[in-house]
């Protein structure tokens, strides 16, 4: 016969695994090691005479230039001009992208009617529009903002359309089983489901916004960080060029971080966001 022994052991209390949350400051410090370390090394090399710094000024000189521009108020003027263009272009472009992406994503008819044209337009390098925009809209703000908006439009359009297309049919069915109206379905299922992809699209659009603002300002502007670049080139001031580039890096990073920050409360449910 079978001999079955039953062991009734004492319940082993499973200790709740405590999530180790590194303070946010720790991540920041790690991220700063590389750029700050490189700057310090170059500065030391310059001070000890190892490098000739006519075309590649040391960090200290870049910061001096930056400080000078900040003190006489020019820097603020340039930053405000650039940020205004990026904000306006990004705002218009991504709003249009969300609208059209939602339309083509949710309606097959709209997709058949609009998507081929939009994809063809996407295939045109955005900079190819510049001469036409200048003819149509003049050389001032409008043509610049139009260029940036066009650049920001496509990643958002594609991202939103793709997110809606790839929506899990099974989750939508849950909404139907609970008899949600069309608007309730959009608000309670569609919106939260496409939000993560939309945020990613907006982040890449903000990056493109900065790319196109430089293009726009290189082609003719009397103020803006892009103007500082051209001015630095023409007057042989590499420190001014690098100061402007530094501003772009910081502003771009801040914008990206702002998008993440605003989106984070809505995305805590995602694994990836909970871990970072």
């Amino acid at each position: 016969m079978y001999d079955i022994r039953v062991h009734v052991g004492e319940g082993t209390g499973l200790a709740e695994a405590s999530a180790k949350n590194r303070p946010a400051g720790g991540h920041l410090a790690i991220g700063l090691i590389l750029p700050v370390g490189a700057a310090v090394l170059y500065e030391l090399a310059f001070r000890s005479g190892l490098v000739e710094a006519r075309l590649m000024p040391p960090p200290s000189r870049i910061f001096q230039t930056l400080w000078k521009l900040a003190v006489n108020g020019e820097l603020v003027t340039h930053i405000v001009a650039t940020m205004y263009r990026v904000a306006a272009g990004f705002g218009l472009g991504s709003a249009a992208g969300i609208l059209l992406g939602a339309l083509t994503g949710s309606s097959a008819t709209a997709r058949q009617a609009l998507d081929p044209t939009l994809q063809a337009l996407r295939a045109i390098p955005s900079l190819a529009w510049v001469p036409l925009f200048i003819l149509w809209l003049g050389i001032f703000e409008t043509s610049k903002i139009a260029l940036i908006a066009g650049g920001c439009f496509f990643p958002v359009y594609l991202g939103v359309m793709g997110a809606i297309e790839n929506l899990d049919r099974k989750i939508v069915e849950v909404g139907r089983a609970f008899r949600l109206s069309r608007t309730a379905l959009a608000r309670r299922i569609l919106l939260p489901a496409v939000l993560p992809d939309t945020i990613v699209a907006l982040r890449s659009a903000s990056g493109l916004g900065f790319m196109f603002v430089v293009a726009a300002e290189l082609m003719g502007a009397s103020e803006g960080l892009g103007y500082l670049l051209v001015d630095g080139q023409q007057l042989g001031k590499p420190d001014q060029i690098l100061a402007s580039i530094l501003c772009f890096a910081i502003l771009g990073k801040i914008c990206d971080w702002l998008i993440v920050l605003v989106a984070r409360p809505f995305l805590t449910w995602q694994d990836s966001f909970a871990r970072t």
Binding site: I171, E173, A193, L195
Partner: peptide, 29 residues
């Protein structure tokens, strides 16, 4: 002829909405 309040359905997979807490999922209907 369409989903009816008197009829509930449970699928093969849980199909919980990942962006809602457990309590919000239960209270969905």
């Amino acid at each position: 002829s369409a989903p009816h309040p008197a009829v509930g359905i449970i699928f093969q997979e849980p199909r919980l909405l990942p962006w809602l807490s457990v309590a919000e999922n239960i209270g969905f209907g």
